[in-house]
Design a binder for these strands. Structure first.
Lengths: 210, 210
DNA sequence: TAGATTGTTAATCGATTAACAATC
DNA sequence: TAGATTGTTAATCGATTAACAATC
């Protein structure tokens, strides 16, 4: 009774659907067809119907999709109503920005602690989240059992910390360190900012040569 | 004499190759085969050879690739030796983190100014880069002609600013605002952090249900 | 009812993997 | 020379698009 696993390329489009539907909802639009949504998003109607059909039939022939209903369904699929606990490793500039900027609750997470080695940061808070001493990582994680580690620390230290987290049964990482971490049994969601910037550089240069 | 445009999925792998080769170089390794590199990166040897062959033949039969040579070639392809000027719009937490954290020079860019509306920020610097008044965007951009705008401002204001930049002939955006910006003639490199986090949420939930 | 639009099956397109001759 | 490994062509696999019967 194993249901077919949905391809990651489809899953990665879901948050984008969710955003567009949220905007439509806010704009007071109650129904939308795959054709019209495709126009707005720059996708084919076919792709939208194909994507959604991985999760069920949310539309109605001759009518289209009810915006509010589809929005809720996709939110459900994405698991926005979950509250997975997360700890952040690295309270520097990047960690600080993420902790302040991301609305964890709306995305299904709760950031319960930030860990750092800088003594002057320890004991303070970022956006209400306490900064703890890296030395206390083991005891804190053992007690609080977060599902996710957010790696906002330098590349050199990332792998070692990932291993420490793995040993504490933290099996998911949101990784901002510019390093690939390949660890058996650990799922990684990478945000490689430098890679993105280099890709941009390539695209600019390529365009210039046309 | 138009050369075949290289697919974006291949281009997006280049920075990753570049990173791995840089590490090998630092480790003093002088040669590597596609098979061994594939092992390390979790790719097939075939894919690596196929990817590289989009840009030329950098290897040698029976030997493999010279690490230092290949590293330099990929750096060249990515355009790391360029210096495209960039301005950042939004000097809040996220902008501050990016300005401090990203090594623009190493990636082919020079961040020449940050724009904000908060009067207390204007006149200060982030990592040596001055913060200017948003009112002066037009004159500054007209004079300095940056190629890229980095959008680290709230979603609500992102589109309007993108249009202002487009009108000033800034045709490339590195977009951190959680908004899709679709503008004729403007190339966008999106970093949708919230989308990434929601994808992670989905993956955790999916795994739990196995 | 007639028009619109879904969900799904089939066709196409593109990306990845396999195979292998060339050759270092 | 023999073994290794490339670059490239062919085969496979997966993702996107097109087509269409079902039906609101």
């Amino acid at each position: 009774m194993e249901k077919q696993k949905v391809s990651l390329v489809v899953v990665r489009r879901l948050p984008r659907y969710y955003r567009y539907l949220g905007d439509l909802l806010k704009a007071g639009i109650t129904k939308i067809s795959s054709k019209e949504l495709g126009n707005q998003m720059g996708l084919t109607a076919s792709q939208i119907r194909q994507d959604l059909s991985c999760f069920g039939g949310f539309g109605q022939q001759g009518y289209g999709y009810n915006v509010s209903h589809l929005y809720k369904e996709i939110g459900q699929i994405l698991g926005t109503e979950h509250i997975y606990k997360a700890v952040m490793i690295g309270g520097g500039n990047l960690g600080r920005a993420i902790a302040n900027h991301i609305e964890f609750q709306k995305r299904g997470f709760n950031l319960i602690g930030i860990f750092d080695i800088r003594q002057d940061a320890i004991g303070t808070k970022i956006n209400g989240v306490p900064i703890y001493d890296m030395k206390d990582l083991e005891s804190f994680v053992t007690e609080n059992k977060p599902a996710v580690g957010i790696l906002t620390l330098p590349r050199e230290d990332a792998f070692e910390v990932a291993v420490r987290l793995k040993n504490l049964n933290v099996e998911w990482l949101w990784n901002f360190s510019n390093d690939d971490i390949i660890l058996e049994g650990v799922g990684i969601e990478n945000v490689h900012l430098e890679d993105s910037l280099m890709t941009l550089c390539y695209r600019i240069f390529e365009k210039e040569q046309e």
